[in-house]
Amino acid sequence: MRKRLNKLKTEMKVVSKEQKSIKEGQRQVGAKLQGINYECEQLRRETNRIIQQTATTQIRLALMFNILKAREEGDFAKAHQLTALLREVVAMDELIAQI
């Protein structure tokens, strides 16, 4: 009976060590997961920033093309309006970049 009790105590110590090891592993996995989530959020923000910059660049190019087209056609009033609009877009971009 005593041998069996000692054996059970030994097994319980082993199980206790294993449980501590499992808890430590879970803690490490949780910390890594938290780090991965942080990196994913940073990548999302950067992706959104790139998408915004790409859209703005496309708008600028379209405005520049239309300015050139208006000048070729001799429509200087339209070219002036588009140039003013382009300046506003550039100014907004600069404000957004500061944020």
Rank of each mutant, 00 (worst) to 15 (best):
residue 88 E to T: 15
residue 94 E to R: 10
residue 59 I to S: 06
residue 56 T to A: 08
residue 12 M to T: 02
residue 83 T to W: 04
residue 37 N to S: 07
residue 59 I to T: 12
residue 94 E to T: 12
residue 30 G to Y: 07
residue 69 K to T: 09
residue 45 R to V: 09
residue 56 T to S: 13
residue 27 R to Q: 15
residue 94 E to K: 13
residue 43 L to H: 08
residue 68 L to A: 14
residue 57 T to I: 13
residue 19 Q to S: 12
residue 46 E to R: 06
residue 43 L to M: 12
residue 95 L to A: 09
residue 18 E to P: 01
residue 39 E to R: 01
residue 56 T to C: 13
residue 10 T to K: 08
residue 63 L to F: 04
residue 84 A to C: 15
residue 42 Q to D: 02
residue 13 K to T: 03
residue 96 I to W: 13
residue 57 T to C: 13
residue 23 K to N: 07
residue 90 V to W: 15
residue 17 K to S: 11
residue 77 A to F: 06
residue 8 L to A: 00
residue 40 C to R: 14
residue 85 L to H: 03
residue 86 L to K: 05
residue 60 R to S: 10
residue 20 K to V: 07
residue 53 Q to V: 03
residue 47 T to H: 09
residue 62 A to K: 11
residue 37 N to L: 08
residue 68 L to K: 12
residue 71 R to P: 05
residue 83 T to F: 05
residue 32 K to E: 11
residue 91 A to I: 09
residue 75 D to R: 07
residue 26 Q to P: 03
residue 51 I to S: 10
residue 27 R to H: 13
residue 37 N to Q: 08
residue 14 V to F: 02
residue 50 I to C: 04
residue 52 Q to L: 04
residue 14 V to C: 01
residue 68 L to E: 15
residue 67 I to F: 01
residue 95 L to K: 15
residue 4 R to Q: 00
residue 97 A to W: 03
residue 33 L to P: 01
residue 63 L to T: 02
residue 47 T to K: 09
residue 64 M to C: 10
residue 7 K to T: 00
residue 46 E to L: 08
residue 39 E to L: 07
residue 97 A to R: 05
residue 52 Q to M: 11
residue 45 R to T: 11
residue 63 L to S: 03
residue 99 I to T: 11
residue 93 D to H: 10
residue 41 E to H: 08
residue 73 E to W: 07
residue 44 R to P: 00
residue 94 E to C: 09
residue 85 L to D: 04
residue 21 S to F: 14
residue 69 K to L: 10
residue 32 K to V: 04
residue 59 I to C: 06
residue 95 L to Y: 11
residue 96 I to Y: 14
residue 13 K to R: 08
residue 57 T to L: 15
residue 97 A to E: 04
residue 11 E to V: 00
residue 17 K to I: 06
residue 8 L to W: 00
residue 9 K to D: 00
residue 12 M to C: 04
residue 90 V to S: 13
residue 74 G to K: 10
residue 85 L to C: 05
residue 21 S to A: 10
residue 54 T to H: 09
residue 32 K to C: 04
residue 13 K to P: 02
residue 42 Q to R: 12
residue 42 Q to C: 06
residue 74 G to I: 04
residue 24 E to L: 14
residue 89 V to N: 01
residue 29 V to W: 09
residue 96 I to V: 13
residue 54 T to C: 07
residue 4 R to P: 00
residue 14 V to N: 02
residue 90 V to A: 15
residue 67 I to W: 01
residue 13 K to C: 02
residue 35 G to E: 06
residue 5 L to G: 00
residue 68 L to N: 12
residue 54 T to D: 06
residue 5 L to T: 00
